[in-house]
Amino acid sequence: MTSFTNKYVLNLLRNLPRLSISNLRNNDGAVKKNKRGRAQHGGDKHGHGNKGSKARQNFMRPGYETGNTPFYMKFPREQYYKDHHVKRQYPPLSLTTLQKMIDLNRIDISKPIDLSVLCNTGLYNINPEDKHFGVNLIDEGADNFKAKINVEVQWASEPTIAAIERNGGVITTSFFDVNSLFILINPKKFFQRGEAIPRRMIPPDDAILYYSSAANRGYLADPEKISWERFVLAQKYGYKLPKIEDDPDYDMLVSRKDQRQIFYGLEPGWVVNLKDKVILKPIDPQLKEFYRS
């Protein structure tokens, strides 16, 4: 009996056509026509009644209550994101990354490091159009940071300052206005404009205390107070502060920009021509006085 059925089934299988794309068919309802029929092809009111606001699908914007004061405007509230779009931003750079840049010779530590140098590595960039106001050096990798550098950043936390000073380095936080930032991050583009280097502008009201605080190593702080704060920080973090005075790189370590200066070694009012490799300085007393102020 079984042998007969098996034979029958096998025979049937042999004679049936093979399963292929040509004899396959979709399940019923698998393909849905995603079209609204017009006119005689099922076009009538489509569930939206006859004429008027509803037939025209005149949807109100979310929260609108047809003339009532909307619920979301009814009660006074604290604006969590107030002025969020105009706040200054400082894209972070970790000490690990900085150490890596130094180890891979992207940065020459025999010279002072500023935003210009960081942007020239090609590994870090800021865009002042996105309200970026410079680099925030964060303390990630502070324990493994071993370089002795003179670095100028726009924002730094206390552990970062400690990590740099522990290695005998110097850190300064300094503010650059938007115009100066554009010049600093791409000096070549600026020099090709053939203009005199402008003066750096003073920080805004809400940043003035940060940049004049010795604890933040601000560029407007009193140098004596900064040396005291260096000592205080060494005590707090428990390391012996290396003496900069005895350092062979003393000149490099103590070099700082003036509060009106954008580039190291270049004063405001000078014109740099890259083609002729010359620096032009103003001699007009009026100009001199202007750029000195």
């Binding site: 404009r193 053939g194 083609k275």
Partner: peptide, 30 residues
């Protein structure tokens, strides 16, 4: 003209004095 001086230097035949603001410009900036 400043740009031409910045890019091509002396060869641009532009007086480099143009790079600085004039007395009027200075007053404006001030």
């Amino acid at each position: 003209k400043r740009r031409m001086y910045g890019r091509y230097g002396e060869a641009s035949n532009v007086s480099p004095g143009l790079a600085w603001p004039t007395a009027e410009d200075l007053a404006d900036i001030r």
